[in-house]
């Protein structure tokens, strides 16, 4: 698809491209880019975008149920932001898809067919109001760590979208913290509710960062994204940052981490922890998670039920 600049060979284009990103310059949608850069971006950003759209659903389960006027407003704004983040990321993806003639419609169909995956955490069930807090606090906390890792991504439109997204994530984290603290400082039942919730989410949170290497699950896109300066840190480095930032905070609220072995090894300068079941991770991503099909069905039903609206105005 890429059209060569006058007189430059493919190799010359590539070395110009690499020199540009290595100098910290940004690539824009219209610029020449190697095919595998484009495909890596499409894969990464479409998954990120659709994860926001699918990720709105588990939290949305608690939107109409939020237990006070203030919480009703807060969680509406929070889930709205997730949809808004999805909007921006899908726009970035859609512009990258132009050479292939694909549109948002195709992205939605890819999602329904199971070709476009979404993050493992959004395949999980929510069971109590504590989940609304947990998603805002720790799931978004994990997301903030992976997203800030790409704030300087070589692809300009993605970096700019992430900048907008990350500034809104600050509100999300605080919204989550407010819910969590109300529970940890609340009644015995509320404390049990949040501890049970943490126990359920812990493995999913570890999985969120992806496997440490492709040996773990057989595939990993971290190599190519690092080569092209889309991200700078490995999955494991990000997971370790998450531990460092959040473990002390979790413990300070009187919560227990459901992993007796977890500790910081001073000599190795890293957190030692129990690995989650990476086979389960693979199954979840494939669409065999506890709520995968239900959530897809929810999205599909609403998309198809409203098709007449899009048809009506498409003229």
């Amino acid at each position: 698809m890429s059209v060569l600049e006058k007189g430059l060979s493919e190799e010359e284009q590539l070395s110009k491209f690499m020199a540009k990103i290595e100098a910290g310059e940004k690539i824009e949608a219209d610029d020449w880019m190697p095919e595998d850069y484009r495909t890596a971006l499409i894969k990464l950003i479409s998954m990120h975008g659709i994860s926001e759209i699918m990720g709105a659903l588990p939290e949305k389960e608690w939107v109409p149920k939020a237990p006070s006027l203030k919480r009703k407003l807060g969680i509406m704004a929070k889930v709205q932001d997730e949809m808004g983040h999805g909007q921006m990321l899908l726009r970035v993806t859609e512009d990258l898809l132009k050479p292939y003639g694909k549109t948002r419609e195709d992205l939605m169909q890819d999602l329904f067919k199971g070709d476009l995956k979404f993050h493992n955490v959004f395949h999980m069930a929510t069971k109590s109001w504590a989940d609304a807090g947990m998603v805002g606090w720790l799931v978004d906390g994990a997301a903030i760590i992976t997203q800030t890792n790409m704030l300087n991504a070589s692809y300009g439109p993605y970096a700019r979208a992430l900048k907008r997204i990350c500034s809104e994530e600050v509100f999300h984290a605080q919204h989550g913290e407010a819910i969590i603290m109300a529970l940890t400082e609340g009644t015995v039942e509320q404390k049990l509710m949040i501890q049970e919730c943490l126990n359920r989410w812990w493995d999913s949170l570890l999985m969120f960062f992806g496997p440490a290497s492709k040996q773990t699950t057989g595939s990993s896109k971290q190599d190519i994204t690092m080569k092209y300066r889309i991200r700078t840190k490995t999955n494991e480095e990000l997971r370790q940052i998450f531990f460092t930032k959040y473990i002390p905070r979790i413990l300070s609220l009187g919560l227990t981490i459901p992993d007796e072995t977890i500790h910081f090894d001073q000599e190795k300068q890293e957190w030692i922890y129990q690995q989650p079941d990476w086979n389960e991770f693979k199954e979840i991503i494939k669409g065999n998670g506890p709520k995968s099909q239900e959530r897809l069905d929810l999205r599909r039903t609403s998309y198809e039920t409203n098709k007449w609206v899009r048809d009506a105005l498409a003229k």
């Binding site: 059209v3 949608a29 219209d30 610029d31 512009d95 050479p99």
Partner: peptide, 13 residues
């Protein structure tokens, strides 16, 4: 030479 100006869709042409 002629025809409506093609608004560059993804700019590499």
């Amino acid at each position: 030479g002629s025809g409506t100006l093609w608004r560059n869709r993804w700019g590499d042409r």
